[in-house]
């Protein structure tokens, strides 16, 4: 067994700032939400002043709430489409296509990172300007070449926010995979080439086994991020008719537009549990792989 560099006391002492930050900004609000979720607190009306403790009543109600299931279904589709297939898939593809092509890589990376670093509100306006039914750039182009205009936000709302989120977040996956690819010793691929392996075999037998753990890390992170993302609200407001109402938007609507703070907090707790479950699932995958 290795001896630690510092004594136990020093370690505890050095951890105090980090732990207290985690306690104040993560654990305390978490417990707070848990507590509010068991009351019928509202932001206006008599229950704003004197909320009652209702135990698990909110949770029972959530489980028969059609808006909750709608939001859950949309969130899962959104995560699957924009994070797992979109960002991770496209990120991997871009990383592979630009592998060992230095100029192309720096160009593609600059473009993709640009989409990643623009502030969210600005991005939302850009996309509204791009997709608006009457004045959007895309529809102006479509009608200029003789095609009919499409009301993207109404006819394909979910697809629109999925594509938006892919565009927005691919940079992270691409950077991570590009870096991962650099860790593969060049001789592996050169050898594969010499023995005449097909592109697919090279990917399947050389590249994939070497970056598997990176893919898993990427999936964990972007799944959790995407699950809690709120930016599509700026594009669609959750509409039309709740067709883009992600869980985060539903929580916001419940708590801050319809002022049902307790009920909103209980949905937030459920979202937290789902996040936990997802994280556990991925972690167990990675543990099984190591074992």
């Amino acid at each position: 067994m290795k001896r630690s560099l510092m004594g136990r006391k020093v370690v505890v002492f050095l951890l105090i700032p980090a732990l207290s930050l985690i306690f104040v900004f993560l654990i305390l609000p978490g417990v707070w939400v848990l507590k509010i979720g068991m009351t019928n607190e509202t932001l206006t009306g008599a229950k704003a002043r004197n909320p009652d403790f209702v135990g698990f009543e909110n949770y029972v109600k959530v489980l028969s709430d059609r808006f909750f299931y709608n939001a859950l279904r949309i969130t899962l589709l959104f995560v699957l489409g924009s994070a797992i297939i979109g960002q991770a898939g496209l990120g991997l593809l871009l990383a592979l296509l630009t592998y060992r092509k230095r100029r192309l890589k720096s160009f593609v990376q600059s473009v993709v990172i640009l989409a990643w670093i623009i502030p969210e509100v600005v991005v939302a306006y850009l996309w509204i300007a791009f997709l608006d039914k009457d004045y959007g750039t895309l529809n102006v182009i479509l009608s200029a070449i003789g095609l009919s205009k499409i009301n993207w936000f109404y006819e394909y709302p979910l697809l629109t926010i999925i594509i938006f989120n892919i565009w927005r977040g691919t940079a992270y996956s691409m950077l991570l995979f590009s870096a991962a690819l650099e860790t593969i010793p060049p001789s592996y691929l050169e050898t594969a080439e010499v023995i005449g392996a097909s592109t697919w075999r090279k990917f399947k037998d050389v590249v994939f086994p070497n970056i598997k753990s990176y893919i898993l890390t990427d999936l964990i992170l972007i799944t959790l991020w995407t699950f809690n993302v709120f930016t599509p609200y700026l594009l669609t407001g959750g509409g039309p008719s709740f067709r883009t109402e992600l869980l985060s938007i539903y929580i916001y609507r419940t708590a801050f537009r319809y002022f049902k703070l307790g009920y909103g907090a209980s949905i937030a707790t459920i979202a937290l549990l789902i996040n936990f479950a997802l994280a556990m699932f991925y972690l167990s995958l990675s543990r099984r792989r190591k074992a």
Binding site: K133, Y154, L235, G237, G239, P240, S241
Partner: peptide
């Protein structure tokens, strides 16, 4: 109806 339920 589309106008009625569109954002904004």
């Amino acid at each position: 109806a589309v106008l009625q339920v569109s954002p904004g």
